[in-house]
């Protein structure tokens, strides 16, 4: 996506955010359209957010959770695509634990596919909602320095954010232990730091990532308490960033592992609650934009 397209999308999302607050969302915009939330991986937040976004625009929203057991029964992704084609849905929201799965599905289904997170690849709507949240508080993204902290290697949120933030003119600091930093990430145009003390100074935004317990089991981090000691965000660490620095987290949070509750719940510094609100607005904008573009002749 190019900056003008992104700005247009964010502007639209902003207007939906205001409409949502006033309870005046246009409930007939997607009337008669079918949105299927196809989730191959557990997710409460993103699925609910898309569901709400679709319903606020008047679409028929159906949630399909494809459990691991159905996949184990031998039904492939492409069998699922065939099924969905037969159902004539308009917009397909896909979450999958494999990188590239939505792209594969998009080749085979007639519906418009929205990536709601694929493996360790991307999570575009999360990056958009983060950008919108930041923009609302900082006026724009240009010339801001944004730290993304934690498990970069396994984070689709980090990858989408890096691409989007750089496109919008921000500087990006990645902070995390070397074991959670993917190879060659510098080539994307970011600066890599291995300690919060080095990476946080000068940052306008501190974006924390979730550290899954599985990372400890696989030996990537010795223990949760050691991780918190080096990379956990508390008020002392946050003071290293700019005095007006704000905190984001895509959720769900592991309090006491990557973020201290005192920071997470600080109404003056934490934008975590607003991120969720903007999530619905951004997804409304995405559904709206794609539905308008759709030239399906049914």
């Amino acid at each position: 996506m190019h900056p003008p397209d992104i700005t247009q999308l964010l502007d639209l999302a902003e207007s939906y955010a205001l409409l949502n607050r006033s309870g005046k969302a246009p409930r007939d915009l997607l009337r008669g359209r079918t949105v299927i939330n196809l989730f191959f991986e557990d997710s409460t937040r993103t699925r609910t957010s898309f569901e709400l976004a679709g319903k606020r625009l008047g679409a028929d929203v159906i949630n399909m959770s494809v459990s691991a057991s159905a996949v184990n029964k031998g039904e492939t992704l492409l069998d699922t695509a065939t099924t969905l084609n037969a159902m004539n849905c308009d917009l397909l929201v896909v979450r999958h634990d494999q990188s590239g799965a939505p792209a594969l599905l998009a080749q085979k289904v007639d519906a418009c596919v929205i990536n709601a997170g694929d493996g360790t690849h991307e999570h575009p709507t999360q990056a958009l909602l983060d950008a919108l949240t930041i923009r609302r508080h900082k006026g724009g993204l240009e010339a801001l320095t944004i730290a993304i902290c934690g498990d970069i290697a396994h984070s689709r949120v980090a990858r989408s954010n890096i691409l989007l933030l750089l496109t919008l003119g921000a500087r990006v600091h990645l902070i995390g232990p070397p074991t959670l930093m993917p190879a060659g990430i510098e080539a994307l145009g970011v600066q890599v730091f291995h300690s919060m003390e080095e990476g946080l100074p000068g940052c306008d935004i501190v974006m924390m990532l979730r550290l899954q317990k599985e990372r400890m089991a696989r030996g990537l981090v010795p223990s949760a308490r050691e991780y918190f000691r080096r990379y956990g965000l508390d008020h002392t660490r946050l003071a290293l960033a700019r005095p007006d620095a704000l905190v984001l987290h895509p959720g769900p949070m592991n309090r006491g592992v990557e973020i201290d509750s005192a920071v997470a719940d600080d109404p003056h510094r934490s934008l975590i609650r607003e991120q969720v609100e903007m999530g619905v607005a951004v997804r409304m904008a995405v559904l709206d934009t794609l539905a308008r573009r759709q030239t399906r002749n049914v």
């Binding site: 493996g119 990858r159 190879a183």
Partner: peptide, 15 residues
């Protein structure tokens, strides 16, 4: 292969 491309694609990589 581990490197920029695998990182971009979010694929588990082999050095």
């Amino acid at each position: 292969t581990e490197g920029e491309l695998a990182t971009r694609l979010g694929l588990p990589a082999i050095p």
